[in-house]
Design a protein around this nucleic acid. Structure first.
Lengths: 246, 246
DNA sequence: TTCCTTAGTTGCTCAGGCACACTTAGTAAG
DNA sequence: CTTACTAAGTGTGCCTGAGCAACTAAGGAA
Protein backbone atom coordinates (compact mmCIF):
# COMPACT_ATOMS: atom_id res chain seq x y z
CA UNK A 1 0.00 0.00 0.00
CA UNK A 2 2.99 2.31 0.43
CA UNK A 3 6.73 2.49 -0.08
CA UNK A 4 9.39 0.48 1.68
CA UNK A 5 11.71 1.41 4.49
CA UNK A 6 14.29 3.99 3.56
CA UNK A 7 16.26 5.37 6.40
CA UNK A 8 14.47 7.55 8.90
CA UNK A 9 11.26 8.42 10.75
CA UNK A 10 10.48 4.80 11.27
CA UNK A 11 7.77 3.40 13.45
CA UNK A 12 6.93 -0.02 14.83
CA UNK A 13 3.81 0.88 16.79
CA UNK A 14 1.92 -1.71 18.75
CA UNK A 15 4.67 -4.22 18.20
CA UNK A 16 3.15 -5.14 14.86
CA UNK A 17 5.04 -6.30 11.81
CA UNK A 18 7.02 -3.94 9.62
CA UNK A 19 4.20 -2.32 7.66
CA UNK A 20 4.75 1.11 9.17
CA UNK A 21 8.49 1.19 8.60
CA UNK A 22 8.68 4.02 6.10
CA UNK A 23 9.40 7.73 6.31
CA UNK A 24 6.56 9.90 7.57
CA UNK A 25 5.93 13.45 6.43
CA UNK A 26 5.95 16.24 9.00
CA UNK A 27 2.46 17.20 10.15
CA UNK A 28 1.63 20.77 11.11
CA UNK A 29 -1.40 22.96 11.66
CA UNK A 30 -1.58 26.64 10.72
CA UNK A 31 -4.30 29.15 11.51
CA UNK A 32 -5.27 32.22 9.53
CA UNK A 33 -6.79 34.56 12.10
CA UNK A 34 -8.79 37.52 10.89
CA UNK A 35 -10.21 40.46 12.78
CA UNK A 36 -11.39 43.95 12.05
CA UNK A 37 -8.79 46.23 13.59
CA UNK A 38 -8.87 49.99 13.07
CA UNK A 39 -11.72 49.71 10.62
CA UNK A 40 -9.84 47.36 8.34
CA UNK A 41 -9.48 43.65 7.84
CA UNK A 42 -6.26 42.39 9.39
CA UNK A 43 -4.51 39.07 9.78
CA UNK A 44 -2.47 37.87 12.76
CA UNK A 45 1.12 36.85 12.04
CA UNK A 46 3.99 35.71 14.22
CA UNK A 47 7.71 36.02 13.68
CA UNK A 48 9.70 32.83 13.11
CA UNK A 49 12.32 32.08 15.74
CA UNK A 50 15.99 32.64 14.93
CA UNK A 51 17.49 29.43 16.37
CA UNK A 52 19.95 27.09 14.69
CA UNK A 53 18.29 24.93 12.04
CA UNK A 54 15.10 26.99 12.04
CA UNK A 55 13.72 27.57 8.55
CA UNK A 56 12.88 31.15 7.55
CA UNK A 57 14.40 32.78 10.64
CA UNK A 58 12.72 36.06 11.68
CA UNK A 59 10.32 35.91 8.73
CA UNK A 60 6.64 36.53 9.46
CA UNK A 61 4.41 33.47 9.29
CA UNK A 62 0.97 32.18 10.14
CA UNK A 63 0.63 31.04 13.72
CA UNK A 64 0.97 27.28 13.80
CA UNK A 65 3.33 24.42 14.29
CA UNK A 66 3.67 20.71 14.67
CA UNK A 67 0.82 18.57 15.85
CA UNK A 68 1.60 17.39 19.35
CA UNK A 69 0.42 13.80 19.48
CA UNK A 70 0.48 13.94 23.27
CA UNK A 71 -1.53 17.15 23.71
CA UNK A 72 -3.83 17.36 20.68
CA UNK A 73 -6.80 15.05 20.50
CA UNK A 74 -7.55 16.01 16.93
CA UNK A 75 -6.73 18.60 14.30
CA UNK A 76 -9.42 21.09 15.31
CA UNK A 77 -8.26 20.93 18.92
CA UNK A 78 -4.73 21.60 17.75
CA UNK A 79 -5.86 24.63 15.76
CA UNK A 80 -7.89 25.90 18.70
CA UNK A 81 -4.83 25.53 20.91
CA UNK A 82 -2.65 27.57 18.54
CA UNK A 83 -5.31 30.24 18.38
CA UNK A 84 -5.67 30.33 22.15
CA UNK A 85 -1.93 30.55 22.68
CA UNK A 86 -1.63 33.57 20.41
CA UNK A 87 -4.83 35.49 21.17
CA UNK A 88 -6.42 34.07 24.31
CA UNK A 89 -9.66 33.62 22.40
CA UNK A 90 -11.40 30.40 23.31
CA UNK A 91 -14.58 30.12 21.25
CA UNK A 92 -14.03 31.68 17.88
CA UNK A 93 -15.49 30.87 14.52
CA UNK A 94 -13.06 28.21 13.35
CA UNK A 95 -13.30 26.54 9.97
CA UNK A 96 -11.04 24.21 8.08
CA UNK A 97 -9.49 25.87 5.07
CA UNK A 98 -7.63 23.04 3.39
CA UNK A 99 -4.29 21.33 3.47
CA UNK A 100 -1.02 21.96 1.74
CA UNK A 101 1.56 19.24 1.47
CA UNK A 102 4.56 18.66 -0.74
CA UNK A 103 8.16 17.58 -0.77
CA UNK A 104 9.43 21.12 -1.07
CA UNK A 105 7.35 23.47 1.06
CA UNK A 106 9.50 22.94 4.15
CA UNK A 107 13.29 22.65 3.85
CA UNK A 108 13.24 20.10 6.68
CA UNK A 109 11.50 17.53 4.47
CA UNK A 110 8.18 16.31 3.09
CA UNK A 111 5.57 18.16 5.09
CA UNK A 112 1.82 18.67 5.14
CA UNK A 113 -0.03 21.40 6.96
CA UNK A 114 -3.69 21.49 7.88
CA UNK A 115 -4.83 25.10 7.57
CA UNK A 116 -7.74 26.58 9.51
CA UNK A 117 -9.24 29.99 9.42
CA UNK A 118 -10.66 31.86 12.36
CA UNK A 119 -12.75 34.97 12.75
CA UNK A 120 -12.56 36.79 16.06
CA UNK A 121 -13.75 40.12 17.42
CA UNK A 122 -10.80 42.44 17.86
CA UNK A 123 -11.83 43.36 21.40
CA UNK A 124 -11.58 39.78 22.62
CA UNK A 125 -7.93 39.24 21.92
CA UNK A 126 -4.86 39.59 24.15
CA UNK A 127 -1.96 39.13 21.81
CA UNK A 128 1.13 37.03 22.48
CA UNK A 129 4.37 39.10 22.43
CA UNK A 130 5.60 37.66 19.12
CA UNK A 131 2.29 38.29 17.34
CA UNK A 132 1.13 41.33 15.36
CA UNK A 133 -1.84 42.38 13.28
CA UNK A 134 -1.13 43.09 9.62
CA UNK A 135 -3.57 45.03 7.43
CA UNK A 136 -4.51 43.71 3.99
CA UNK A 137 -4.68 46.69 1.67
CA UNK A 138 -6.44 45.73 -1.54
CA UNK A 139 -7.09 42.27 -0.11
CA UNK A 140 -3.43 41.26 -0.10
CA UNK A 141 -0.38 41.39 2.07
CA UNK A 142 2.72 43.35 1.15
CA UNK A 143 5.24 41.20 3.02
CA UNK A 144 6.48 37.81 1.87
CA UNK A 145 5.69 35.06 4.33
CA UNK A 146 7.56 31.95 5.42
CA UNK A 147 6.92 28.58 3.74
CA UNK A 148 3.91 28.72 1.42
CA UNK A 149 1.98 30.78 3.92
CA UNK A 150 1.45 33.47 1.32
CA UNK A 151 -0.58 31.02 -0.76
CA UNK A 152 -2.51 29.86 2.27
CA UNK A 153 -3.34 33.42 3.27
CA UNK A 154 -4.44 34.28 -0.26
CA UNK A 155 -6.74 31.27 -0.26
CA UNK A 156 -8.16 32.28 3.09
CA UNK A 157 -8.89 35.82 1.93
CA UNK A 158 -10.54 34.53 -1.21
CA UNK A 159 -12.64 32.06 0.79
CA UNK A 160 -13.65 34.74 3.27
CA UNK A 161 -14.67 37.23 0.59
CA UNK A 162 -16.50 34.58 -1.32
CA UNK A 163 -18.47 33.37 1.67
CA UNK A 164 -19.30 36.86 2.81
CA UNK A 165 -21.28 37.24 -0.39
CA UNK A 166 -23.82 34.69 0.74
CA UNK A 167 -23.34 33.98 4.44
CA UNK A 168 -23.48 35.61 7.82
CA UNK A 169 -19.78 35.08 8.51
CA UNK A 170 -18.97 38.73 9.26
CA UNK A 171 -21.18 38.47 12.30
CA UNK A 172 -18.34 36.58 13.98
CA UNK A 173 -16.07 39.58 13.53
CA UNK A 174 -18.44 41.73 15.59
CA UNK A 175 -18.33 42.48 19.29
CA UNK A 176 -21.07 41.06 21.47
CA UNK A 177 -23.44 43.93 20.72
CA UNK A 178 -23.52 45.91 17.53
CA UNK A 179 -25.83 47.92 15.30
CA UNK A 180 -26.95 47.13 11.78
CA UNK A 181 -24.88 49.97 10.31
CA UNK A 182 -21.86 48.56 12.18
CA UNK A 183 -22.44 45.18 10.62
CA UNK A 184 -22.92 46.69 7.19
CA UNK A 185 -19.62 48.52 7.52
CA UNK A 186 -17.86 45.25 8.27
CA UNK A 187 -19.42 43.61 5.23
CA UNK A 188 -18.26 46.57 3.17
CA UNK A 189 -14.74 46.41 4.59
CA UNK A 190 -14.39 42.74 3.77
CA UNK A 191 -15.95 43.01 0.33
CA UNK A 192 -14.27 46.31 -0.39
CA UNK A 193 -17.35 47.76 -2.00
CA UNK A 194 -20.41 49.67 -0.77
CA UNK A 195 -23.66 47.86 -0.15
CA UNK A 196 -27.15 49.21 -0.42
CA UNK A 197 -28.67 50.04 2.94
CA UNK A 198 -32.25 48.90 2.62
CA UNK A 199 -31.44 45.69 0.77
CA UNK A 200 -28.83 44.88 3.37
CA UNK A 201 -31.23 45.40 6.25
CA UNK A 202 -33.94 43.31 4.63
CA UNK A 203 -31.53 40.50 3.97
CA UNK A 204 -29.95 40.36 7.40
CA UNK A 205 -33.19 40.72 9.31
CA UNK A 206 -35.02 38.14 7.27
CA UNK A 207 -32.13 35.72 7.84
CA UNK A 208 -33.17 35.59 11.49
CA UNK A 209 -29.59 35.45 12.68
CA UNK A 210 -29.54 38.40 15.07
CA UNK A 211 -31.93 39.67 17.70
CA UNK A 212 -32.38 43.15 19.15
CA UNK A 213 -31.34 43.83 22.73
CA UNK A 214 -33.27 46.35 24.80
CA UNK A 215 -30.70 49.08 24.28
CA UNK A 216 -29.77 51.73 21.79
CA UNK A 217 -26.37 53.01 20.72
CA UNK A 218 -26.41 56.75 21.45
CA UNK A 219 -24.36 59.26 19.54
CA UNK A 220 -24.45 62.77 18.16
CA UNK A 221 -27.47 61.87 16.05
CA UNK A 222 -30.30 59.41 15.87
CA UNK A 223 -29.67 56.39 18.18
CA UNK A 224 -29.33 52.98 16.58
CA UNK A 225 -30.81 49.69 17.71
CA UNK A 226 -28.30 47.30 19.23
CA UNK A 227 -28.37 43.64 18.24
CA UNK A 228 -26.61 40.45 19.23
CA UNK A 229 -26.02 37.14 17.50
CA UNK A 230 -28.69 34.55 18.14
CA UNK A 231 -27.76 31.46 20.10
CA UNK A 232 -27.47 28.80 17.41
CA UNK A 233 -24.12 30.12 16.23
CA UNK A 234 -24.18 28.29 12.90
CA UNK A 235 -23.48 30.57 9.97
CA UNK A 236 -26.54 31.40 7.91
CA UNK A 237 -26.60 30.83 4.17
CA UNK A 238 -28.60 33.32 2.16
CA UNK A 239 -30.08 30.78 -0.17
CA UNK A 240 -30.50 31.88 -3.69
CA UNK A 241 -30.37 28.59 -5.46
CA UNK A 242 -31.84 26.50 -8.18
CA UNK A 243 -35.28 25.69 -7.03
CA UNK A 244 -35.58 26.03 -3.28
CA UNK A 245 -37.09 22.76 -1.99
CA UNK A 246 -40.45 24.02 -0.72
CA UNK B 1 6.99 25.00 19.39
CA UNK B 2 6.19 21.30 19.82
CA UNK B 3 6.58 18.39 22.20
CA UNK B 4 9.79 16.64 23.16
CA UNK B 5 11.18 13.32 22.07
CA UNK B 6 9.16 10.36 23.25
CA UNK B 7 10.10 7.06 21.78
CA UNK B 8 9.46 6.52 18.12
CA UNK B 9 9.18 7.96 14.60
CA UNK B 10 12.16 10.15 15.12
CA UNK B 11 13.92 12.19 12.51
CA UNK B 12 17.22 14.00 12.28
CA UNK B 13 16.91 15.31 8.74
CA UNK B 14 19.68 17.36 7.23
CA UNK B 15 21.96 16.59 10.10
CA UNK B 16 20.41 19.45 12.06
CA UNK B 17 19.99 19.62 15.81
CA UNK B 18 17.33 17.67 17.66
CA UNK B 19 14.30 19.85 16.90
CA UNK B 20 12.56 17.20 14.82
CA UNK B 21 12.98 14.40 17.32
CA UNK B 22 9.37 13.81 18.22
CA UNK B 23 6.72 11.35 17.12
CA UNK B 24 5.07 12.07 13.79
CA UNK B 25 1.47 11.25 12.95
CA UNK B 26 0.72 8.94 10.04
CA UNK B 27 -0.17 10.80 6.87
CA UNK B 28 -2.64 9.37 4.38
CA UNK B 29 -4.73 10.49 1.43
CA UNK B 30 -8.23 9.19 0.67
CA UNK B 31 -10.37 9.83 -2.37
CA UNK B 32 -14.15 9.86 -2.59
CA UNK B 33 -14.89 8.95 -6.21
CA UNK B 34 -18.37 9.56 -7.55
CA UNK B 35 -19.95 8.54 -10.82
CA UNK B 36 -23.41 8.07 -12.22
CA UNK B 37 -23.80 4.32 -12.69
CA UNK B 38 -27.10 2.77 -13.71
CA UNK B 39 -28.87 6.07 -13.44
CA UNK B 40 -27.88 6.58 -9.84
CA UNK B 41 -25.12 8.27 -7.92
CA UNK B 42 -22.55 5.75 -6.76
CA UNK B 43 -19.29 5.82 -4.84
CA UNK B 44 -16.22 3.69 -5.43
CA UNK B 45 -15.01 1.61 -2.48
CA UNK B 46 -12.22 -0.91 -2.02
CA UNK B 47 -11.95 -3.80 0.38
CA UNK B 48 -9.31 -3.60 3.11
CA UNK B 49 -6.65 -6.31 2.93
CA UNK B 50 -6.75 -9.17 5.41
CA UNK B 51 -3.03 -9.33 6.38
CA UNK B 52 -1.57 -9.51 9.87
CA UNK B 53 -1.74 -6.17 11.65
CA UNK B 54 -4.06 -4.63 9.09
CA UNK B 55 -6.82 -2.54 10.65
CA UNK B 56 -10.42 -3.23 9.62
CA UNK B 57 -9.63 -6.38 7.62
CA UNK B 58 -12.00 -7.02 4.71
CA UNK B 59 -14.09 -3.96 5.55
CA UNK B 60 -14.99 -1.62 2.69
CA UNK B 61 -13.14 1.68 2.65
CA UNK B 62 -12.40 4.72 0.53
CA UNK B 63 -9.52 4.20 -1.88
CA UNK B 64 -6.41 5.73 -0.37
CA UNK B 65 -3.35 5.07 1.65
CA UNK B 66 -0.10 6.47 2.93
CA UNK B 67 1.64 9.32 1.23
CA UNK B 68 4.74 7.99 -0.45
CA UNK B 69 7.40 10.62 0.08
CA UNK B 70 9.46 9.11 -2.71
CA UNK B 71 6.72 8.96 -5.37
CA UNK B 72 4.32 11.81 -4.51
CA UNK B 73 5.39 15.35 -5.24
CA UNK B 74 2.42 16.79 -3.39
CA UNK B 75 -0.95 15.86 -1.94
CA UNK B 76 -2.93 16.38 -5.13
CA UNK B 77 -0.52 14.21 -7.07
CA UNK B 78 -0.92 11.54 -4.44
CA UNK B 79 -4.71 11.70 -4.74
CA UNK B 80 -4.50 11.58 -8.52
CA UNK B 81 -2.28 8.52 -8.25
CA UNK B 82 -4.76 6.68 -6.01
CA UNK B 83 -7.55 7.54 -8.40
CA UNK B 84 -5.58 6.37 -11.40
CA UNK B 85 -4.61 3.12 -9.73
CA UNK B 86 -8.25 2.27 -9.00
CA UNK B 87 -10.04 3.56 -12.09
CA UNK B 88 -7.51 4.32 -14.80
CA UNK B 89 -8.95 7.83 -15.07
CA UNK B 90 -6.26 10.43 -15.57
CA UNK B 91 -7.91 13.83 -15.79
CA UNK B 92 -10.94 13.91 -13.56
CA UNK B 93 -12.48 16.69 -11.62
CA UNK B 94 -10.51 16.51 -8.40
CA UNK B 95 -11.14 18.78 -5.44
CA UNK B 96 -9.86 18.83 -1.90
CA UNK B 97 -12.56 17.93 0.58
CA UNK B 98 -10.85 18.45 3.91
CA UNK B 99 -8.72 16.61 6.39
CA UNK B 100 -9.50 14.36 9.31
CA UNK B 101 -6.92 13.74 11.98
CA UNK B 102 -7.05 12.45 15.52
CA UNK B 103 -5.41 10.13 17.98
CA UNK B 104 -8.12 7.52 17.63
CA UNK B 105 -9.22 7.25 14.02
CA UNK B 106 -6.57 4.67 13.17
CA UNK B 107 -5.65 1.92 15.66
CA UNK B 108 -2.06 2.14 14.50
CA UNK B 109 -1.64 5.59 16.06
CA UNK B 110 -2.22 9.33 15.63
CA UNK B 111 -3.12 9.74 11.99
CA UNK B 112 -4.31 12.44 9.65
CA UNK B 113 -5.86 11.90 6.23
CA UNK B 114 -6.22 14.41 3.45
CA UNK B 115 -9.50 13.68 1.70
CA UNK B 116 -10.22 14.53 -1.93
CA UNK B 117 -13.30 14.09 -3.97
CA UNK B 118 -13.44 13.22 -7.63
CA UNK B 119 -16.17 13.20 -10.25
CA UNK B 120 -15.71 10.93 -13.23
CA UNK B 121 -17.87 9.75 -16.13
CA UNK B 122 -18.82 6.13 -15.62
CA UNK B 123 -17.78 5.15 -19.13
CA UNK B 124 -14.19 6.26 -18.57
CA UNK B 125 -13.32 3.90 -15.76
CA UNK B 126 -11.67 0.49 -15.79
CA UNK B 127 -11.97 -0.71 -12.24
CA UNK B 128 -9.24 -2.38 -10.20
CA UNK B 129 -10.20 -5.91 -9.09
CA UNK B 130 -10.66 -4.96 -5.42
CA UNK B 131 -12.91 -1.98 -6.24
CA UNK B 132 -16.69 -1.79 -6.54
CA UNK B 133 -19.36 0.82 -7.09
CA UNK B 134 -21.84 1.29 -4.25
CA UNK B 135 -25.15 3.08 -4.74
CA UNK B 136 -26.24 5.74 -2.27
CA UNK B 137 -29.98 5.30 -1.75
CA UNK B 138 -31.40 8.37 -0.06
CA UNK B 139 -27.98 10.01 -0.20
CA UNK B 140 -26.38 7.61 2.24
CA UNK B 141 -24.59 4.31 2.34
CA UNK B 142 -25.97 1.25 4.06
CA UNK B 143 -22.65 -0.38 4.93
CA UNK B 144 -20.34 0.69 7.73
CA UNK B 145 -16.94 1.74 6.46
CA UNK B 146 -13.43 1.38 7.86
CA UNK B 147 -11.84 4.14 9.95
CA UNK B 148 -13.93 7.32 9.90
CA UNK B 149 -14.58 6.91 6.19
CA UNK B 150 -18.31 6.99 6.81
CA UNK B 151 -17.98 10.56 8.09
CA UNK B 152 -15.78 11.52 5.18
CA UNK B 153 -18.22 10.06 2.68
CA UNK B 154 -21.15 11.84 4.33
CA UNK B 155 -19.26 15.12 4.12
CA UNK B 156 -18.47 14.50 0.46
CA UNK B 157 -22.09 13.81 -0.38
CA UNK B 158 -23.21 16.91 1.45
CA UNK B 159 -20.58 19.02 -0.32
CA UNK B 160 -21.52 17.59 -3.70
CA UNK B 161 -25.23 18.22 -3.23
CA UNK B 162 -24.58 21.66 -1.92
CA UNK B 163 -22.35 22.67 -4.79
CA UNK B 164 -24.67 21.21 -7.37
CA UNK B 165 -27.21 23.81 -6.30
CA UNK B 166 -25.08 26.61 -7.66
CA UNK B 167 -22.34 25.16 -9.86
CA UNK B 168 -21.78 23.21 -13.03
CA UNK B 169 -20.16 20.29 -11.21
CA UNK B 170 -22.48 17.60 -12.61
CA UNK B 171 -21.05 18.34 -16.03
CA UNK B 172 -17.97 16.38 -14.95
CA UNK B 173 -20.14 13.30 -14.42
CA UNK B 174 -21.23 13.35 -18.07
CA UNK B 175 -19.76 11.49 -21.02
CA UNK B 176 -18.02 13.51 -23.70
CA UNK B 177 -21.27 14.29 -25.52
CA UNK B 178 -24.64 14.63 -23.91
CA UNK B 179 -28.00 16.36 -24.31
CA UNK B 180 -29.54 18.96 -22.06
CA UNK B 181 -32.19 16.54 -20.83
CA UNK B 182 -29.37 14.09 -19.99
CA UNK B 183 -27.65 16.75 -17.94
CA UNK B 184 -30.86 17.71 -16.23
CA UNK B 185 -31.44 14.09 -15.25
CA UNK B 186 -28.02 13.98 -13.63
CA UNK B 187 -28.74 17.14 -11.67
CA UNK B 188 -32.00 15.59 -10.56
CA UNK B 189 -30.33 12.34 -9.54
CA UNK B 190 -27.77 14.13 -7.41
CA UNK B 191 -30.25 16.53 -5.86
CA UNK B 192 -32.93 13.88 -5.58
CA UNK B 193 -35.66 16.24 -6.65
CA UNK B 194 -37.15 17.28 -10.00
CA UNK B 195 -36.05 20.50 -11.64
CA UNK B 196 -38.06 22.73 -13.92
CA UNK B 197 -37.14 22.27 -17.56
CA UNK B 198 -37.16 25.78 -18.96
CA UNK B 199 -35.47 27.38 -15.98
CA UNK B 200 -32.81 24.70 -16.10
CA UNK B 201 -32.13 25.27 -19.78
CA UNK B 202 -31.94 29.02 -19.42
CA UNK B 203 -29.53 28.70 -16.55
CA UNK B 204 -27.18 26.19 -18.12
CA UNK B 205 -27.09 27.87 -21.50
CA UNK B 206 -26.54 31.34 -20.10
CA UNK B 207 -23.67 29.99 -18.00
CA UNK B 208 -21.77 29.48 -21.24
CA UNK B 209 -20.22 26.25 -20.03
CA UNK B 210 -21.25 23.89 -22.82
CA UNK B 211 -21.32 24.20 -26.59
CA UNK B 212 -23.42 22.36 -29.17
CA UNK B 213 -21.78 19.84 -31.47
CA UNK B 214 -23.08 19.40 -35.01
CA UNK B 215 -25.03 16.28 -34.14
CA UNK B 216 -28.35 15.26 -32.71
CA UNK B 217 -29.29 12.37 -30.47
CA UNK B 218 -32.00 10.45 -32.37
CA UNK B 219 -34.67 8.40 -30.68
CA UNK B 220 -38.31 7.45 -30.99
CA UNK B 221 -39.30 11.10 -30.79
CA UNK B 222 -37.97 14.55 -31.37
CA UNK B 223 -34.13 14.50 -31.64
CA UNK B 224 -32.12 16.34 -29.03
CA UNK B 225 -29.15 18.62 -29.55
CA UNK B 226 -25.84 17.14 -28.39
CA UNK B 227 -23.45 19.30 -26.40
CA UNK B 228 -19.96 19.01 -24.98
CA UNK B 229 -18.14 20.78 -22.18
CA UNK B 230 -16.26 23.89 -23.23
CA UNK B 231 -12.50 23.87 -23.01
CA UNK B 232 -11.81 25.96 -19.91
CA UNK B 233 -12.82 23.15 -17.58
CA UNK B 234 -13.21 25.33 -14.51
CA UNK B 235 -16.53 24.81 -12.78
CA UNK B 236 -19.00 27.62 -13.32
CA UNK B 237 -20.64 29.35 -10.38
CA UNK B 238 -24.19 30.52 -10.93
CA UNK B 239 -23.80 33.81 -9.16
CA UNK B 240 -26.74 35.02 -7.24
CA UNK B 241 -25.16 37.18 -4.66
CA UNK B 242 -25.39 40.34 -2.70
CA UNK B 243 -24.75 43.03 -5.20
CA UNK B 244 -23.05 41.64 -8.27
CA UNK B 245 -19.90 43.75 -8.74
CA UNK B 246 -20.74 45.24 -12.14
C1' DT C 1 -35.79 77.01 16.88
C1' DT C 2 -33.11 75.67 13.08
C1' DC C 3 -29.66 72.84 11.04
C1' DC C 4 -26.90 68.78 10.55
C1' DT C 5 -26.14 63.97 10.68
C1' DT C 6 -27.10 59.32 10.77
C1' DA C 7 -30.96 55.63 11.50
C1' DG C 8 -34.45 53.52 9.45
C1' DT C 9 -38.62 53.19 5.90
C1' DT C 10 -41.14 53.35 1.63
C1' DG C 11 -42.26 52.99 -3.14
C1' DC C 12 -40.83 52.35 -7.89
C1' DT C 13 -38.35 49.80 -11.41
C1' DC C 14 -36.02 46.01 -13.21
C1' DA C 15 -33.96 41.33 -13.68
C1' DG C 16 -34.20 36.61 -13.22
C1' DG C 17 -36.35 32.30 -11.56
C1' DC C 18 -40.30 29.49 -11.82
C1' DA C 19 -44.84 27.36 -13.31
C1' DC C 20 -47.33 26.18 -16.99
C1' DA C 21 -48.91 26.02 -21.43
C1' DC C 22 -47.68 25.81 -26.00
C1' DT C 23 -45.11 24.46 -30.35
C1' DT C 24 -41.99 21.27 -32.80
C1' DA C 25 -40.06 17.12 -34.75
C1' DG C 26 -39.57 12.80 -34.76
C1' DT C 27 -41.63 7.46 -34.57
C1' DA C 28 -45.29 4.23 -34.72
C1' DA C 29 -49.73 2.55 -35.49
C1' DG C 30 -54.07 2.44 -37.93
C1' DC D 1 -51.54 9.18 -45.59
C1' DT D 2 -53.22 10.52 -41.39
C1' DT D 3 -53.48 10.50 -36.59
C1' DA D 4 -51.63 9.64 -32.09
C1' DC D 5 -47.94 9.73 -28.98
C1' DT D 6 -43.72 11.32 -26.86
C1' DA D 7 -40.06 14.00 -25.61
C1' DA D 8 -37.44 18.37 -27.09
C1' DG D 9 -37.54 22.93 -26.87
C1' DT D 10 -40.00 27.89 -26.51
C1' DG D 11 -42.94 31.78 -24.77
C1' DT D 12 -45.81 34.15 -21.31
C1' DG D 13 -47.04 35.90 -17.03
C1' DC D 14 -46.24 36.04 -11.98
C1' DC D 15 -43.41 36.87 -8.06
C1' DT D 16 -39.31 37.80 -5.30
C1' DG D 17 -35.64 40.41 -4.16
C1' DA D 18 -32.06 43.89 -5.41
C1' DG D 19 -30.99 48.73 -6.75
C1' DC D 20 -32.21 53.39 -6.36
C1' DA D 21 -33.81 57.41 -4.46
C1' DA D 22 -36.63 60.01 -1.79
C1' DC D 23 -38.60 60.35 2.53
C1' DT D 24 -39.32 60.36 7.70
C1' DA D 25 -37.26 60.00 12.51
C1' DA D 26 -34.45 61.18 16.38
C1' DG D 27 -30.94 62.84 18.42
C1' DG D 28 -27.09 66.91 19.33
C1' DA D 29 -25.21 71.51 18.44
C1' DA D 30 -25.35 76.23 17.35
Amino acid sequence: MAGEALNKNLGKDHGKSGQLDFPRPLTTVDVVIFAIVNDSLQVLLVQRPAGEGEPFPLTWALPGGFVDVAKDRDLAACAARKLREKTGVTSPYLEQLGSWGSATRDPRGWSATHAYFALIPDEASELAPDARWFPLPGGRLKDKLAFDHGDILATAIQRLRNKVEYTSLPAYLMPAEFTLPDLQRVYEIVLDRPLEKSAFRTRILSADMIEPVAKMRRGPNRPAQLYRLKKGREPVYFVRTFNPPE
